[in-house]
Design a protein around this nucleic acid. Structure first.
Length: 346
DNA sequence: CGGGGTTGATGG
DNA sequence: CCATCAACCCCG
């Protein structure tokens, strides 16, 4: 069977770069086998035949591999959502003043309309537009943040999940750069097979809008954190695309990387030896921020984004009330800073 | 931090 | 007529 798959790989245009490596493997295989099923000399003939069969061109997969300023992705042109999106987080890439208020969700101009989703597919669908490479991972560069809003990086996501559990998972990933110099992340949608009432197994998912954008049943995130002593700490998570309460722990959703790979059909870390991989959660804990910490963050955000003094005072009042009159130093600083900038504007 | 929505003015 | 955009409102 190994031999058969090697033949296929040789013919497949996507693997043309591997031809040299495969040939050496094939020759090595021949020396081991008394009766090879195929002669090496036959392969060029098959390639010539293939070119004749594919007279009108090799079928292509639009968006198979897309590079942006701060992320890389593979686009699923049939589902109108990515297969996977990859990122590299460092202290530098997470610091800056790029702001999502300058960015807009829009179709990716690199993908022809036939294969591209639109904002209208999401409107009134009941599903929010969820970033795979988060906007908040691009604070260092407004253009990079703008690119994260292209719909090639977006999947239909439950709003509560997007703004809640998944948001906190993204915050957890950003926090890792404090203890690890390099953090690499894969994120993407998953269609998990499910046993139906008839006892058979189905992959079932909704599609939305006139472009039939696929709604994933789950989302995955695979984290690789490089430590200073050159260890790779890895964790993979498979998260249902539905509301998740604060009672649930991140560890409840941890799975093997191979479980994700099996579901999506991609080897995500082909060059990372399983031996050198260590469980991030054993080293790190994998704890999301608490409900209280989480709520403080958007209280701070509302204060920072106040449009005028009156709005600011209103937000400050409701924030201090919610915190029983005991706002943190950080919140007070945000309030004072916002007050200064708003006063300077007048 | 992550999202949702409405309205009114504008312009081809 | 529809599409775009800024301003404004709201939520956890």
């Amino acid at each position: 069977m190994k031999w058969k798959s090697a033949k296929y790989l040789y013919m497949h245009p996507s693997f043309s770069g591997m031809v040299v490596g495969l040939l050496s493997g094939i020759i090595g295989y021949k020396t081991l086998c008394a009766k090879p099923h195929i002669e090496y000399e036959e392969l060029p003939d098959k390639k010539r035949r293939g070119k004749e069969i594919l007279k009108y061109g090799i079928p292509e997969r639009p968006g198979d591999l897309m590079f942006y300023k701060n992320h890389v992705l593979s686009y699923n042109a049939a589902s109108r959502i990515p297969f996977w999106v990859a990122e590299h987080l460092t202290k530098d890439s997470l610091s800056g003043k790029a702001n999502r208020k300058f960015s807009d969700f829009k179709p990716d101009p690199s993908i022809e309309n036939l294969f591209m989703s639109e904002n209208s597919d999401y409107w009134n669908s009941g599903w929010s537009r969820g970033h795979m490479a988060p906007a908040g991972d691009n604070k260092h560069d407004q253009e990079a943040m703008d690119e994260s809003f292209l719909l090639t990086n977006i999947v239909p996501q439950d709003l509560s999940n997007n703004a809640g559990f998944w948001n906190r998972l993204e915050m957890y990933c950003r926090k890792l750069v404090k203890n690890y110099d390099d953090v690499r992340i894969f994120s993407g949608p998953v269609m998990v097979p499910e046993t139906d009432q008839d006892g058979n197994i189905y992959v079932k998912y909704r599609v939305i809008g006139k472009n039939h954008v696929a709604v994933p049943t789950h989302l995955f995130k695979v984290i690789v954190a490089d430590s200073a002593d050159s260890n790779q700490f890895v964790a993979a998570f498979l998260v249902p695309n539905k509301p998740i309460t604060f009672e649930r722990k991140l560890r409840d959703y941890q799975v093997d990387v191979s479980r994700i790979e099996s579901l999506i059909g991609f080897r995500l870390l082909p060059n990372l030896k399983a031996k050198s991989m260590k469980n991030l959660c054993n080293n790190e804990g994998c704890n999301l921020i608490s409900k209280e910490e989480f709520e403080k963050i958007f209280l701070t955000s509302r204060i920072k984004n106040s449009r005028n003094i009156k709005d600011l005072e209103m937000q400050w009042k409701s924030a201090t009330e919610q915190l029983d009159g005991k706002p943190s130093k950080h919140l007070k600083e945000a309030y004072n800073e916002a007050k200064q900038t708003l006063q300077a504007r007048n």
